[in-house]
Computed example of a mutant assay.
Amino acid sequence: MKAQFLGEFFGTAFLLMIVVGSGIMGHNLSGGNEAIALLANSLATGAGLFSLIKTLGSISGAHFNPVVSLIEYFWGRLTLKKLISYWIAQVAGAIIGVFLTHIMFNQPIFQLALKNRNEPYLWISEIVATFGLICTIALSGKKNVEFAPLSIALYIVSAYWFTSSTSFANPAVTIARALTNTFCGIAHNGILAFILAQIAGAVFAYLLLKNFEKPTIK
């Protein structure tokens, strides 16, 4: 249990350092060109996520995401105690990851995001993004499990671009990104709606997946 908790904590911390750090770097170097900044952000996130899944997948399952852990619980692969432990590790790791990113970029450690993302079209985007993520995780490794990390990473890269919300698809990420007033931030008024949308997307995916042969989430 301890190793799994640490795997989720450090994995989610590094995920947020990758997301927020590449967002800051991309924004700083792009001269205000948001397309270039988003491209840098998405590619770094995909590459980092692939590495994290390959590195920590055998330790904790490499969830790094409360809704992924929730679906694992629904499938009976996590106990309630372990689910809560994973949630604590993921949220704590995400917040620590943001704080460390601020330190690395010589910014104030404690920040509150001001970027408003509290719009209905963005909620729908988060439902779609999370639905697609859960389906990708559950189905991409059914025949060749070794391809799952690459499939997941590539899905996230693409979802940065095909969703209007840039695919948060992760409650821990959403909470932590409310604590950075940078390229990747989300103002506090959008947190609850995003998380509810992410849960809805995950549950819709779970209900659909029940109609298939029981999938394997790694």
Rank of each mutant, 00 (worst) to 15 (best):
L39Y: 09
V203E: 12
F183G: 03
T130S: 04
L154E: 03
K142G: 00
G23K: 04
M104G: 07
G132I: 06
L192A: 15
Y155A: 13
R117I: 04
L208K: 07
E8Y: 14
G141F: 09
I96Y: 03
I84V: 14
S165Q: 08
I103D: 10
I152P: 10
A37L: 04
F5G: 04
A37E: 07
E119A: 13
A129H: 07
L43F: 13
T130C: 05
A178G: 15
S158W: 11
V203K: 03
P66Y: 00
F183P: 00
I217F: 15
A113Y: 04
E119Y: 15
Y86N: 02
A193V: 09
A89F: 09
N116G: 07
A40K: 00
P215N: 12
I134K: 02
V203L: 15
L133G: 06
I24F: 06
T55A: 15
S30L: 10
A205G: 03
F5Q: 07
L114I: 15
Q90Y: 04
F212Q: 12
G57D: 10
L209H: 02
G185L: 04
L49F: 15
F110E: 00
T174R: 08
L38D: 00
R117G: 07
V128M: 11
T180I: 09
K54P: 04
Q107P: 00
L38I: 01
R177H: 03
I36R: 08
V19M: 07
A92I: 13
N189C: 04
N41Y: 05
K2Y: 10
V67F: 09
H102S: 04
S69V: 04
K210W: 06
T166P: 00
V128P: 01
Q111N: 03
I96N: 05
W123D: 09
Y86C: 01
G32H: 13
S165A: 15
N211R: 14
F212L: 14
F162M: 09
A138H: 09
W75L: 15
T12S: 11
M17V: 10
S85L: 10
N118A: 13
C135E: 01
G132A: 10
L80F: 15
W161E: 03
I18S: 08
I96M: 13
S60K: 01
M17S: 08
I95F: 07
L83P: 01
L154V: 14
N106Q: 13
A187N: 11
K54Q: 13
L207I: 13
I24N: 07
Y206T: 02
L196E: 09
S167Q: 07
G61S: 06
G61K: 04
L39W: 12
W87Y: 14
T101N: 08
V157S: 01
G32I: 13
F204S: 10
V145I: 15
L83H: 07
G61D: 06
F50W: 12
T163P: 00
I18A: 10
L112G: 07
F212W: 08
T216P: 00
